[in-house]
Design a protein around this nucleic acid. Structure first.
Length: 635
RNA sequence: GCCGAGAUAGCUCAGUCGGUAGAGCAACUGAUUCGUAAUCAGUAGGUCGGAGGUUCGAUUCCUCUUCUCGGCACCA
């Protein structure tokens, strides 16, 4: 019987015996065979060396395709594993997948890998690539595989086969040369030589076996891998540039804030950093007002009994701060919602009043694990642009839709257009019954659709204990994603804290509570803002918008006049009257990312004009002071 | 929290195979008044993260501890 292979262009070719992808490719052209990485057989990725034993739609995936890159990276991980085991006998292998930019592999070894080891390992990897070992796919039985790995002292692999793989699942083994193998789904390259040279080990870190902190601690070695050297070089360059945008570095350079040992995970805002905060806060306050929120303020500490009632104590006591006075224990608030419910409960509400929307720049403290702290992105004391909407179930969809549209506008105003939207669904540890969760989750889906969102990622098990949530994520300079905004449907808290309204039949009803934030944590958002703009914030957010710099001291008086006029017009302006050359001042304020430098010399002083120089250009523009004020206030 | 690395002047960093530290920039003082990315000269500045130990002697070696960084776990 013959095998029919259908090519992407519709051509069909029949073979007497099952051909391998490599054979077919060679038949077309040796050049193609060389560039081939894997093949697509009826849509699935197969090894080049695997015989195609059925009629199939066939496609060759060459090195430059995205799917190929994944295979190259995955192979690099295997080459890494072999290199480590050759160099450090007794080290156990576990898992090693490809990542967005490369690969990693987790190893079990008592001794830690050092930076120096990484170089040695990388050299050995290059050696294995040079050896061009054939990579061969084999199908093994479960028993054989378990026996093999147990005999080899690979207890992690053996455990995974026993517990992680169904007995009727096909179990594939990939041999890399004669002496090394790993269990893996594949597909892989036909030989190690095809990995190429564009890889580099970057760092070693910790990881837990099967991602669980109760399990053994493994060592993870990370590497980069690309299809060619130019791509790798370009990526390294990009990382180098990104590191310069780090908000922690820029905060020092631009004198925005600092953190110190006595207050881990907390922020000391300096005048310039606080000016950014104020600009963001005033903007958000306008949004509150425009979208129907009333700003409120709850107390910073409340009796622990309230947190027991709300359910926070059960779920988060280890991450809460407490304080005591006169034999009472108070919790320092980790969230604003119970406070807002108290404000809601202080009065009687008719169905006609709903939705009621409260907002607060709510300062919260959470005792985050020390290892989680990260600059001002993850802190122990932060301020949320928090809001709570008390409404009926029928009002959820329109509230969520309106919120979404408002949120997207806010992000755009700050310069963000690339948001990741996620829907976090019911966690294992939760309040309420499944029917309630079904309604809450569906309400969020419906609202997203109504807002015109066509794609989002659903995260099973990641919701809050009281309800599901939409999450808005932004990326920092080195590609780490951070949650900023959120919208959460909550049927539980009103019940727990006994909130109600009176319906049209004079009956008491439970309102639904929506928890929402757009920037999320002010600290985190400002951190991302700094990185996104590389410190050069847009004019309306810049801590110092204008510096007036005289060329000669004769112009000092006029500089003060100009600055006073701008300040009166609401511009954040400073003067630089130091006895320095204008070049020096230009350089310094440019490095400080001041958007506009106003230079005044004798000429300007006489003619009552100013010369503007905007950040990022060398162009000079002379105009009357009045014109300058107009220009610098409308932006 | 766990694994690993680190902490030296305001900042960026060098250094001491154990004999109590140095540069550049910033700061301060003086001179210079110079039209768009660094004017010159001088001065001052550090119990080398904290505690304990070994030692005649510790910033250096050891232990503990705090914080930071990278990774993982966590993230209401």
């Amino acid at each position: 019987m013959s095998i029919q292979i259908t090519f992407p262009d519709g051509n069909v070719k029949s073979f007497e015996q099952a051909p391998t992808g490599l054979e077919i490719a060679t038949g077309i052209s040796p050049g193609l065979a060389k560039k081939a990485v894997v093949v697509k057989v009826n849509g699935d990725l197969w090894d080049l060396s695997r015989p195609i034993d059925r009629d199939a739609k066939f496609e060759i995936v060459t090195r430059d395709k995205p799917e190929a890159l994944e295979v190259i990276r995955h192979d690099a991980a295997h080459v890494l594993a072999q290199a480590v085991q050759e160099l450090f006998p007794g080290t156990q292998i576990t898992f090693g997948p490809s990542t967005d930019v490369g690969f990693y592999y987790d190893f079990a070894r008592a001794e830690p890998f050092t930076e120096a080891d990484l170089e040695t390992i990388e050299q050995r990897m290059r050696n294995i690539v040079k050896r061009d070992l054939p990579i061969v796919r084999e199908v093994w039985s479960h028993d054989d595989a378990v026996k093999h790995f147990e005999k080899a002292g690979e207890s992690f692999k053996a455990e995974w086969i026993r517990e992680g793989i169904q007995a009727d699942e096909t179990l594939t083994i990939y041999k890399q040369g004669d002496a090394w193998l790993d269990m893996c789904l594949g597909p892989h390259l036909p030989s190690t030589g095809r990995v190429g040279t564009a890889f580099k080990l970057t760092r070693v870190g910790g990881a837990y076996w099967r991602g669980d902190a109760n399990n053994a601690q493994l060592q993870r070695i990370y590497g980069l891998a690309f299809a060619n050297d130019d791509d790798l070089k370009a990526h390294l360059k990009m990382v180098e540039e990104a590191e310069k945008r780090d908000h922690r570095k820029l905060a020092k350079q631009l004198d925005l804030f600092h953190q110190q040992e006595e207050a881990p995970g907390m922020v000391f805002w300096h005048p310039k950093g606080w000016a950014i905060w104020q600009a963001v806060e005033q903007y958000v306050r306008k949004v509150y007002k425009k979208s129907g929120y009333k700003e409120v303020r709850g107390p910073q500490i409340m009796d622990v009994s309230l947190w027991k009632k709300s359910g926070h104590w059960d779920n988060y006591q280890d991450n809460m701060f407490f304080t005591e006075s006169e034999k009472r224990t108070y919790a320092i608030k980790p969230m604003n919602c119970p406070g807002h419910v108290q404000i809601y409960n202080a009065g009687l509400h008719s169905y006609r009043d709903l939705p009621i929307r409260y907002a607060e720049f709510g300062g919260c403290h959470r005792n985050e694990p020390s290892g989680a702290l990260h600059g001002i992105m993850r802190v122990r004391a932060f301020t949320q642009d928090d809001g709570h909407i008390f409404c009926t179930e029928a009002q959820i969809e329109s509230e969520v839709t309106a919120f979404h549209q408002q949120a997207m506008q806010v992000y755009a105003d700050f310069g963000f257009t690339n948001l990741d939207i996620k829907l976090a669904l019911r966690p294992e540890k939760r309040l309420g019954d499944d029917a309630t969760w079904d309604r809450a989750e569906d309400a969020l889906r419906a609202a997203l659709r109504a807002a015109g969102v066509d794609s989002w990622t659903e995260l099973a098990g990641e919701g809050a204990f009281y309800g599901p949530k939409i999450e808005y994520h932004l990326k920092d300079s080195i590609g780490r994603a951070w949650q900023v905004g959120t919208m959460q449907v909550d049927f539980m808290m009103p019940e727990r804290l006994d909130a109600h309204y009176i319906d049209e039949h004079s009956q008491r009803q439970r309102p639904v509570m929506l928890h929402r934030a757009i920037v999320g944590s002010m600290e985190r958002f400002i951190g991302i803002l700094i990185e996104h703009h590389a410190g050069a914030l847009p004019y309306w957010l810049a801590p110092v918008q204008v510096v007036v710099a005289p060329i000669v001291s004769d112009a000092d008086g006029y500089s003060d006049e100009v600055a006073a006029a701008l300040s009166t017009a609401g511009v954040r302006v400073e003067t630089d009257l130091r006895n320095e050359k204008i070049n020096y001042k230009i350089r310094e304020h440019s490095l400080q990312k001041v958007p506009v430098i106003v230079v005044v010399g004798r000429k300007e002083a006489e003619e009552k004009t100013v010369t503007l120089r905007r950040l990022g250009t060398e162009r000079q523009e002379t105009m009357s002071l009045a014109d300058a004020i107009t220009q610098l206030t409308v932006q």
